[in-house]
């Protein structure tokens, strides 16, 4: 292996495993362009029928929350139990809620 991959941008890969489900992040890879990223994602992440739709996005285009903001962003939700729909009955037939 040469170092070429390091010159190529990093892409994040999202795969939808079935119709009706959301795309899920499955990993990342290097590719020179979007088409190559699509093909590489297909070959690296869907070899065993894991998916039926692929999204790839440049890792550099993702706006991520800062680890330091964790407290301010997420802790306030801690004591707000009324936000959880725990008083509803979910029918057994609903699989993917």
């Amino acid at each position: 292996m040469t170092d070429n991959a390091r010159d190529w941008p990093l892409w994040e890969v999202f795969v939808r495993s079935r119709q009706g489900l959301a795309h899920k992040h499955v990993g990342s890879l290097h590719a020179a362009d979007g088409e190559m990223a699509q093909q590489n994602a297909r070959d690296v992440y869907t070899r065993r029928r894991e998916g039926e739709s692929i999204w790839v996005v440049l890792s550099s285009e993702i706006v991520a929350s800062a680890p330091d903001d964790k407290g301010a962003l997420f802790d306030p939700a801690e004591d707000k139990v009324y936000r959880h729909p725990t008083f509803y009955h979910v029918p057994d037939e609903v699989e993917n809620l």
Partner: peptide, 10 residues
């Protein structure tokens, strides 16, 4: 021996 890991798999 592929030029990069992803292409090796492809």
């Amino acid at each position: 021996h592929g030029p990069v890991l992803e292409e090796d798999i492809a």
